[in-house]
């Protein structure tokens, strides 16, 4: 490891200070404003605000739709993470193993992640419509009419449809894994091969544990990203049927874009989501620290 030069820390602080200051001011002001607004009843014009104390928070915490939205956020994140740590990881390893037509496969998996999510969600929504959707049309064409479903209006299927859509967007985790696989120590893999380990064993017992830091990055990115999976839900199910697929983004959006004095309520929802997201991050940091400590 390179030794620190005298005064290097101070120079770094000097260079970083302006950026930190801008960030600190930006976030401090945003949080202060958001928290202040959350205790009022006010419209988007932010004039004539009426103090309502904790009322907005009380309403939110007793609103089943909001609690469902938070739960859905976490469930969608869990599903996304599960798919990424298994399917995306396996795909990345396969692609890194020198499989033929690699570039084509990369394109197939990465293009959805690079396409605007709004477009992907709209196309999916059309594909899943009961009468003219491509999925049901396809099933009918091959005589499997009995398997057609109301994918977007049946609660259970709608929930799975959103998970399917999120799973389709695994390009980013594949990219993370691909980048880190390129830097993987090949001597360890060679040793495993010499010891007679098969491909599956190598993937599960050698590569997977060696990619632990990537798993953490992917998990954290997806977990926090799930709080911003707004377009996916809004343009596919609209949060329905009956809030089954509602997430906090779509829930808050309705109150922000509606007329009336609903901005205080939307701000309170945002503060609560912020707290949940921070708790998730803290838990994540603690868990990874504990594991790192144990592995030392």
């Amino acid at each position: 490891m390179r030794r620190k030069l005298p005064g290097e820390g101070r120079t770094a602080v000097l260079f970083l200070a302006p950026l930190f200051l801008v960030y600190a001011l930006y976030f401090a002001y945003s949080f202060w404003f958001l928290i202040g607004t959350s205790f009022t009843k006010v419209s988007i014009g932010f004039s004539n605000a009426v103090a309502v104390g904790w009322k907005n928070y009380r309403l939110l915490l007793t609103d089943p739709a909001f609690l469902t939205a938070i739960r859905n956020n976490l469930l969608f994140a869990a599903a996304s993470i599960a798919v990424s740590l298994t399917v995306a990881f396996a795909i990345a390893v396969l692609l890194a193993s020198g499989i033929g037509g690699r570039r084509l496969y990369y394109a197939i998996f990465l293009v959805p992640a690079l396409t605007p999510i709004a477009l992907v969600a709209t196309v999916f929504s059309r594909m899943l419509q009961y009468q003219d959707g491509a999925l049901n049309q396809g099933l009918r064409a091959i005589g499997l009419d009995g398997l057609t479903e109301h994918w977007l209006t049946d609660s259970g299927w709608a929930f799975l449809a959103v998970i399917g859509l999120l799973a389709y967007l695994i390009g980013l985790p594949i990219m993370y894994y691909t980048a880190d696989l390129a830097a993987l120590r090949t001597d360890v893999l060679e040793a495993a091969v010499l010891d007679g380990a098969g491909p599956l064993l190598i993937m599960r017992n050698v590569i997977h544990p060696m990619m632990r830091s990537t798993h953490i990055t992917v998990t954290l990115a997806l977990l926090l990203g799930s709080f911003r999976a707004f377009e996916v839900v809004l343009l596919s199910t609209g949060g329905g049927p009956d809030n089954t697929t509602e997430i906090v983004g779509t829930y808050t959006y309705r109150f922000v874009t509606s007329a009336g004095s609903t901005i205080g309520y939307a701000s309170a929802a945002s503060v609560l989501v912020l707290i949940v997201a921070m708790l998730v991050s803290v838990v994540q940091v603690l868990v990874t620290r504990t594991k790192r400590g144990a592995s030392r």
Partner: peptide
């Protein structure tokens, strides 16, 4: 406004 959207979901239900 937003109440309409909420009611609409329940009508669908």
């Amino acid at each position: 406004s937003a109440f309409s959207a909420e009611v609409g979901k329940k009508v669908l239900k």
